[in-house]
């Protein structure tokens, strides 16, 4: 595939709901509210997110980006901006699977809800995990720095995002040590995310059986548009391939930077950030001949 021109990029969970909603124009907000009401009623979640109890607060927050992505995706399509291909970063894989028609939106919500059992299981086993972000190091530079300081059971690089943005994951103590090390060696910023889990690390597999079961039992369909894998960077066009990507998702490290490079090599020049707050645009880098457009760009006609 070397005739691709336009790619849609889907972000992970992590942004606070209020930050996702503040950039939604009023007409999109109406649609968001409708999807929010339907989803939260079906899932039995309190619509005042903070009033949910236990891990419901966390998963309720994680449903929000799925809903805002759906609204932004539909808006782009209605504006005649049609993707040739797409990519999903972390839980963006779930989001793109739903928006590209490979699973139902309800399935995507159920996948998020299934993480509650992972948190319960981690707590029962007394395992303290975390994730962190290091800004100012490339994947290779950080690998070299961390090499020899940590075993793979303690810490892994969960994602190479760009030439200056890397995500780490593993045991909470190791994440904190790595952050201190990176700061001392010149990181512009390094911080723990306080996730209480370590997505993109195989360490969580044993605690995520319910999630894996839900993921396996979804009736996948071929996606309407191809999707590039952020794990092996193959182009996926079938239901089976999308299923595999979703099954790999939470326990496998990502190379987002390589996925974007491969898309460029396939001819993509226009990238569209499907997150409502332009988060993908902020941490991703493409070459000068390409551009990442945000909702704000599209809404203001700046494309």
């Amino acid at each position: 595939m070397n005739n691709l021109k336009r790619a849609f990029l889907f972000n992970a969970i992590g942004s606070r709901p209020e930050k996702l909603l503040v950039k939604l124009p009023p007409e999109l907000m109406d649609r968001y509210t409708h999807y929010f009401d339907v989803a939260f009623d079906r899932l039995g979640l309190n619509k005042d997110i903070e009033k949910n109890t236990g891990y419901d607060v966390k998963v309720a927050e994680w449903i929000v980006p799925l809903l805002t992505d759906r609204v932004v995706f539909e808006y782009y399509i209605e504006k005649g901006i049609i993707p040739d291909i797409g990519a999903g970063y972390s839980s963006g894989i779930v989001s793109i699977s739903a928006c590209f028609g490979s699973m139902r939106h309800e399935d995507a919500h159920d996948l998020m809800m299934s993480h509650r059992s992972m948190f319960r299981s981690l707590k029962e086993h007394g395992l303290k995990l975390d994730m962190g972000v290091i800004i100012g190091f490339s994947y290779d530079d950080l690998s070299e720095l961390l090499n020899g300081h940590f075993t793979s059971d303690e810490l892994m690089i969960g994602s190479g995002n760009s030439s200056f943005h890397v995500m780490i994951c593993g045991k909470a103590e190791a994440v904190n040590k790595a952050i201190e090390l990176a700061l001392n060696e010149g990181a512009i910023k390094a911080f723990s995310m306080g996730t209480e889990t370590a997505f993109h690390n195989p360490i969580i597999e044993a605690y995520s059986q319910e999630h894996m079961e839900v993921c396996r039992n979804i009736q996948y369909k071929d996606p309407k548009y191809p999707i590039i894998s952020v794990f092996d960077h193959n182009i996926m066009t079938t239901a089976e391939e999308v299923k595999r990507e979703n099954l790999l998702n939470i326990t496998t490290p990502i190379r987002w930077d390589i996925a974007l490079k491969k898309l460029e090599e396939s001819g993509v020049k226009e990238f569209f950030d499907v997150s409502s707050n332009g988060a993908v645009h902020k941490f991703s880098r493409v070459s000068r001949k390409c551009k990442i457009y945000t909702l704000e760009d599209v809404f203001s006609g700046n494309i």
Partner: peptide
Amino acid sequence: IKLQSIGKYML
């Protein structure tokens, strides 16, 4: 300029 040079200066 390497980002890490700036990061070290910022310490």
